[in-house]
Design a protein around this nucleic acid. Sequence first.
DNA 1: CAAGTGCCTTTATC
DNA 2: AGATAAAGGCACT
Length: 296
Amino acid sequence: MNAKLSVMPKELHEPIFDLNSTLCCGQAFRWDKQGQWWFGIFGKNACKIRQKSGSIEFEGADDRSVKNYFRLSDDMPKILSDINKDKHIKNAIVKFKGLRILRQEPWECLISYICATYKNIPAIKNMLNNLSQKFGEETHLENHSLYVFPSPTKLANASLHSLEACSLGYRAKYVSETAKKICDAALDLESLKKKSYDEARRELLELPGVGPKVADCVLLFSLEKLEAFPVDLWIKRAILKYYAAQLPRPFVERVTAQGSLSNTSYGKLSSFGRQYFGKYAGYAQEYLYHYERTST
DNA sequence: CAAGTGCCTTTATC
DNA sequence: AGATAAAGGCACT
C-alpha cells in the first residue's frame, strides 16, 4: 500500500523539501534512484520514495518513520533564515532550497563515516553496500533486494579478512575495533543524543578511526547536533574562498599552504562555522558542501 | 586503454 | 604544536 504525506500544508506555495538534493548531497550512501523512485533502507524499512511537487509518496515505511528520517518537522523557514548570513550561503540556499539533513541511525552513520575517510562517494557507497550484502539481513521490496545494515555484533564478529574483502582497506580494523567497543557497551551511542555537543564529541573521539571530521559528521547526521560543522576539503576551500577576511591573516595563509588540516586548524575552521552560522551551522555546512561540489 | 590524480581523513612518528 | 608519511583501492580524467 502506498502512503502519501503532505510535506507542507497545502496552502503554502513553497513546500520546503527537495528529495533529490537531500539524497544526492552525500550525507547518506545507501539510496539509489531508479526512474523517479529512490530505493533505500533506513532502520529496517526497505523503502521507495518519490516526490511530486508538494507531496512525497512512499512505500515500505510508516508516516512517522518517514517524517523522522527526513526531518520533516524541522522548521525550514526558520533554519534557512537563520543561516542566511551572506550572499554566498544565499546562493546555495536558493539553489538547493529544501535540502534537509537526514536523521540517520547513529550506528550506521558512525561506520559510514569511518569508511568515508579518504574515499570518494561512489567508493563509499560500494563499501557500505558490500558490508550490508555480506553481513546484513536481506529484505525485499517488490523485485528489489535490500539489505539491513549489519548490527554491531555482526561486524564485531566478522573476520578482518572478510571486512577487507568489502574494499575497506585499512579501515577494516577501525570498523572491527569500533564494533567491538560498541558491543562491549564501552560507548552507548544513543546516550550521546542527550549529552552536549562537546561531551558527545569527546566520547566519539575515543573510537578508533574517528577523528574530528568523522565525529562531527556523526554528531550532525545522527545525534541531533545541528550545530556541528564538519570541515572537509570542500568546506575548507569554501571558507578560504568566501570568508578569509573574517579570519586572522596568518591563519589563512597557514591553512592555504597546508595540504591536509592539522587538528588545531580543523578546530578553528569548524568553530568559525559554528559561531558564524549559529545553532544550525550544520545545515549551512551541508548547503555549502553541496553547492561547492556541484558548481565547480 | 594506461597512467596519473584525487578522494567528505586518521594515525603514527618525528 | 606542526609537519610528514603511510594507509586499500576505487573513480574519474
